[in-house]
Simulated assay, not measured.
Amino acid sequence: MNRQRALAVTAAGAIATALSLAAGAAPASAEILDAKAEEARAELTGNVSEALISELQDTFGLTEAEAYDRLAVEDVAADLLEEVPADLDESYAGLWVSEEADEIFVATTDAADTTGLRAEGATPVLVEHDLATLEDAAAAVAPISMDGYYGNYVDVVNNTLVIEAADTATAAGLIEAAGIDPSLVTVDTAAEAPQTYFVRGGDAYIVENSWRCSVGFSVRQGSTPGFVTAGHCGSAGDQVTSGEAAPGTFRNSVFPSADRAWVAVGSGEQLLDDVNMYSGTRDVANATQAAVGSSICRSGSTTGWRCGTVQAFNQTVNYAEGSVFGMTRTNVCAEPGDSGGSFISGNSAQGMTSGGSGNCSSGGTTFFQPIGPALSAWGLTLVTT
């Protein structure tokens, strides 16, 4: 694939204290990435739906060949996301796909890691703070309740903890209360107060004949069929009384702190292994986590099928109902009525729509509950192709 190579500090938008290690060694990293991507592309050819390729072309302005190139690099990034953190351990500071999806960056605090990272096809970036330090700071801030504090997340691209607040005074008070180093923090006062998307999403269902939400993904607990959705859609024991989904009962639900639930349906109900795209369906093959920068789409009954990219993991979101932790941040738009619906990257299930800010006219930010914690907490198995 053709690539426009640049220093990592420019291409990734890293903070001024970050030092690119790509200079002089990027061709070697790029050649290895190209080889891995070509292998991934060969596996994708013939196994990717025309709808997915068309969607990537429309969302990112790509040709068909460029859409395949993007998917191939994202597949390589997903593999590295499973391997690199354990390999680097304490020096690891994050991984992301470039905006053009032609480069994979890995941040580290140890220059000795660079040779190994280049050998994996990644472009190393030397930064000041390791990921564990930033996540510890995020954990110290997360449980504090304060008017005007909307949430926080670790921005691996810029090697900083972002605190979203109404003003700098609120953020300063939060930093002091948490007892964290201010140098770790960037304050975002342009953020809006988030809200949960409550009414409809994906395939709609009605709870207690009163309100609507949407199916996330089909799952089973042993032989019991059901689906995962957002926790704020219902409490344990609430009944799904009608809608496009089969009738059932909320077996488990967590909100706030997290935003996940699962609904058990009748033993004779059919579970589909796909997601409603509103112009067709998308098969679900697995639940492999997509890297920051990867393409991702969301299904919801209010705004239909919308796409964008993953921006950050482990977002803390302060809703009016309480704080939720461990959300994934995206720039996919959503509106009230899209709650609980599916977030999917390629054919990999990612999570269930929680809430956010903005709308699909002017753009916005949407958070989703990763599907992994729901599957592991309740012994659920994702229904796949």
Rank of each mutant, 00 (worst) to 15 (best):
D203G: 06
G173D: 01
A169R: 14
T186K: 13
Y197V: 11
A230S: 04
L174A: 04
D181P: 03
A165I: 09
A193P: 13
T170A: 11
R200L: 15
I163H: 08
N252V: 15
P247K: 13
E208A: 15
G243W: 04
A166I: 13
N209F: 14
A230C: 12
P182C: 13
G222F: 00
G202E: 06
Q221G: 15
T241E: 01
A246F: 07
Q195Y: 15
T189L: 07
F250M: 03
A169E: 13
L184S: 00
P225A: 07
A236I: 00
T229C: 11
I163E: 01
E164A: 10
A190D: 14
A246M: 02
T224Y: 01
W211S: 12
I175P: 03
A166S: 00
D238G: 08
A165M: 05
A246P: 00
V215T: 13
V219P: 03
T241F: 04
L184Q: 09
S223T: 11
S218H: 01
A165L: 06
T170H: 04
N209W: 14
Y197R: 11
R251C: 07
L174H: 04
A245N: 00
R220Q: 14
G234L: 00
V240T: 12
E192F: 11
G179F: 14
I175E: 09
G237V: 14
A178Q: 12
V207G: 05
D238P: 02
T229R: 06
R212M: 12
I206L: 07
A230K: 10
T186H: 11
C233V: 06
D167H: 08
A245T: 06
R200T: 14
T241Q: 01
G173S: 06
V207R: 08
A204M: 08
S210P: 01
D238H: 10
V187H: 02
